[in-house]
Amino acid sequence: MDGPRIGEQVRTCLVVDDSSVVRKIARRILEELNFQIIEAENGERALDACRRAMPTAVLLDWNMPVMDGHEFLLHLRRLPGGDLPKVVFCTTENNVDHISRALEAGADEYIMKPFDKAIIAAKFHEVGLIAAAMPA
């Protein structure tokens, strides 16, 4: 798959999920959408990554050990420059209550697992991260 072209700004996506399988699937899809991937297995690791360098986007699981996705997001939005990344939740929590709490905490979009490439592309398009919603 094509990487970022010369002269094109490198766009990074931080994939936060405690399941290495989910991170691997998300990595494959997002690399096809021309993102450079950083992985983190919980909210605390993700926050460390953001302190080092703010990513363009964050794909964020909810339930994780150490620090969950919701708490991570509250911390992220208070960091300097922490308002910039587009944050898309990606979780099995699929009820109205969780979705509302995510949006209140500053999430830009919300994916209910299971997901596929079409859903990720549609949601990333929705928040302006990629130009076209569907590859074809």
Binding site: V96, S100, M112, K123
Partner: peptide, 19 residues
Amino acid sequence: QFEVQRGLPIQLLLKYFKQ
């Protein structure tokens, strides 16, 4: 769940749908 996630912004899902 699949159908409502393709093209529908999450805010509109919350606003106009009942789960």
